[in-house]
Design a protein around this nucleic acid. Structure first.
Lengths: 244, 244
DNA sequence: CGCGCCATTGACTCTGGTCAACGCTAGTGG
DNA sequence: CCACTAGCGTTGACCAGAGTCAATGGCGCG
């Protein structure tokens, strides 16, 4: 159910210029930073540590001391919980703008690793927390983000508790498309950088069921299989599945 | 899957003295109010509207304008989402100390109704939000509570995505017992004011599966059926189910 | 007393899980 | 340059856990 022990293969995050330029950060308006004026952003920039996390590499693990919190600026991370017997539940995929460590608690309650090459803004938790004390609207924004994550988690409870395999895949694809639209632009093609196993562990299914469901959608021309993703051909069909 | 259209039957919340005494409120140290000094509590008390919500009565519905936010002080409420075709997922049971309307967004993303007679502190959302601006540590506390709710929701994702029916019931009982312990005292008896249907809709199961699972636990002497709840006889067995 | 709601139980069904084989592709080494 | 291997995805055959449908029982309320 989970494939561990993978290490980086490429020159990690090739072509990265690691200087801080919060002002022109592509993720600025997607993230906590959106709450900040240019001057305030400057003050936050003094404590930021921009980092590259190569694909398949660990950001942090469930139970680790949360020395740092992170703001994703590029790539995709999977967030998951493991049961002692190895069963895995992916609780979310983090995209640019997403904040990891919302609770500011001293240990991580889930694990995170990079799906593809990821860039993050890393902050010492204590220093970030300090900024929160100085900038109440930053706290307000963080709360807003946390509330939003809560709503997303509650939506996912409905998916896992009450929806069929077909419906789960349909919901997943439309939601992911919408999230990519906020970052790039609205496109009928949904990139799928994660593995089928990841999708299965996110949707509470097995890899075989996910594969079969995709195959069914391909056969009935609801989806088209494209490299590293799918193209949605029949929105009507997917919408029908998600709305009922 | 869902039973709608129920109204109050009793003299609502009989024996309730509706004056405000936040100082000596039993839920004070369980709730947001815990962040506040006696003086600050006094200032919050000026905008509170204490209310009784009779059993099976609606607090608010998904999509309603969130004119008010609530702090539960007594009883139990079920929080749920409905799919258009009637399938229901209960996303949580609210107990004394729990806050409803954490996101402060202008519409409720779920419905809430009273399981038994419930008392709440009702606040106008705008006025409560104003208090948040004046009392940064109140906001901090609210964020803490929201983060905690997020963690609970993420734990529940694992339950719904990866656990068997038996495990789900075991996790449910032990978690509920722990929550009651924070309010009353630790007891091997777990009160179950909600219906089997509610439990089923919370655990992503059917009422029949929940009933059969309880029967199995009764037969094997893991649980004892008592009026309005169960008594845990074999903790070892339940722990084993939840920990694997 | 009788009605209605809720819970339980049994018989049967079915969706999705399990197990196994196979194919494709990318990376490796002769 | 190509054979070999490993990992991932797909597909098929079969299985089982939970769902569906239906009957029955118990209890509270009118």
């Amino acid at each position: 159910m989970v494939t561990a022990g993978a290490l980086q293969r490429h020159p990690p995050c090739a072509g990265s210029e690691l200087q801080v330029d919060c002002q022109h950060c592509r993720a600025r308006f997607l993230s906590v930073c959106n709450a900040l004026s240019d001057e305030e952003l400057h003050s936050l920039a003094t404590i930021v540590d921009p980092r590259c996390v190569p694909a398949k590499t660990t950001l942090f693990s469930q139970g680790d001391e949360a020395t740092n919190v992170f703001n994703v600026t590029e790539g995709m991370a999977r967030l998951y919980k493991l049961l002692p017997d190895g069963r895995r539940q992916i609780i979310g995929f983090a995209l640019p703008g997403d904040f990891l460590g919302l609770s500011l608690s001293d240990r991580f309650s889930f694990s995170a690793d990079a799906v593809d090459d990821v860039r993050v803004c890393r902050f010492q938790r204590t220093r970030f927390s300090q900024q929160l004390d100085e900038k109440p609207h930053l706290l307000r924004r963080l709360h807003e983000i946390a509330s939003n994550e809560l709503m997303i988690a509650q939506d996912q409870l409905v998916v896992l508790g009450r929806r069929s395999a077909e419906e789960r895949v349909a919901v997943f694809l439309l939601a992911l498309r919408k999230r990519f639209a906020a970052i790039h632009h609205l496109s009928p093609t949904v990139p799928l950088p994660m593995s089928r196993q990841d999708i299965a562990d996110y949707l509470g299914l097995t890899i075989e069921t996910v594969s079969r469901t995709f195959s069914k959608f391909f056969k009935e021309k609801t989806l088209l299989n494209v490299p590293d993703g799918v193209r949605i051909l029949n929105f009507e069909r997917l919408n029908e599945l998600t709305q009922r």
